[in-house]
């Protein structure tokens, strides 16, 4: 089984995230970055599948120079090889352009075909739109089974469990397919010392847009179908009234609700 996992290098959510004043894009240099936490679940699930049978896991990322750290972390966890697509023309790409680049990278990584399985996280932790998996499936012409909290392979089919609002569903698709996984699906492993040492010898290929045959005019800020026209920091919420419960905390809470016309 040939599995490709798509991952993203994102600004650390614990840090002070912001935008570039010049072009309204996400600031990826002024803050610490890391492998998006939600993508660790995708890497872990791919590794579990590979370990259970015959399989090779390739990790693909698109991003600036430091984004290579995202795939390195995945290699340390146990992925077999990695691809980093990097090109100055990519800066400012929207989700649609990103999915175009990823689609070509996935095909090339699979030896100009389609892998049996493409696995992604449910969304990034910076943009959080959660649209790239669906866009990638559309570009690759693959069925998509998203938000998996459980994944089972049987023969040429994949089935997942999805916990929706109204029901818990079992969803089945033929292979090849694209699956996105939630943070409920597994417990991602920490890279072991052995894993960290082994990762140093694993191949990381760096591809440009030209390597993928993607016209630079189709990606980047100027080609984006949407553009951020302004951004503003929300004024921090001002702390309101704080009371310490001295036996009447609940009553005071209800009085506040009443004063605010919630009752």
């Amino acid at each position: 089984m040939n599995i490709v996992v798509c991952v993203k290098y994102v600004p650390d959510a614990q840090s002070d995230r912001s935008f570039n004043e010049a072009d309204n894009t996400t600031d990826r240099e002024g803050v610490e970055g890391l492998l998006s936490e939600l993508d660790e679940y995708a890497v872990e699930e791919a590794l579990k599948i590979a370990e259970a049978g015959e399989g090779e896991v390739t990790v693909v990322t698109v991003g600036p120079e430091q984004a290579v750290n995202a795939v390195k972390k995945a290699l340390q966890m146990g992925a077999h090889k990695a691809v980093h697509v990097s090109d100055e023309a990519i800066h400012g790409s929207d989700a649609a352009a990103t999915s175009l680049i990823l689609a070509e990278a996935v095909k090339k990584a699979a030896g100009d075909g389609t892998p049996d399985l493409v696995i992604t996280g449910m969304s990034s932790t910076d943009g959080v739109m959660g649209v790239v998996p669906a866009m990638l499936a559309e570009r690759l012409g693959l069925p998509q089974v998203t938000y998996a909290s459980e994944l089972t392979l049987h023969g040429d089919k994949v089935s997942i469990r999805r916990d929706g609002d109204a029901a818990s569903e079992t969803i089945e698709s033929t292979l090849p397919a694209l699956v996105s996984v939630t943070d409920q699906i597994n417990e991602p492993r920490y890279p072991s010392f052995k894993g960290i040492m082994a990762a140093k010898k694993k191949p990381v290929e760096t591809w440009s847009l030209a390597d993928l045959g993607v016209d630079a005019g189709r990606v980047g800020l100027d080609a984006a179908w949407t553009k951020v026209t302004s951004f503003a920091k929300r004024p921090p919420r001002e702390q309101g009234q704080l009371v310490t419960d001295e036996g009447d905390g609940g009553t005071k809470l209800a009085e506040f609700l009443s004063a605010q016309k919630f009752l």
Binding site: P236, R237, Q239, G240, Q241, L242, V243, T244, D245, D248, G249, G250, T251, K252, L253, A254, E255, F256, L257, Q260, L263
Partner: peptide, 22 residues
């Protein structure tokens, strides 16, 4: 830091009291 109104206390006593008052 975010609240308009906060109670420093045990939810197991504060909430039932608030429920009754509501």
């Amino acid at each position: 830091e975010l609240v308009d109104f906060g109670v420093v206390g045990d939810l197991f006593t504060v909430l039932p009291q608030a429920t009754e008052a509501v």
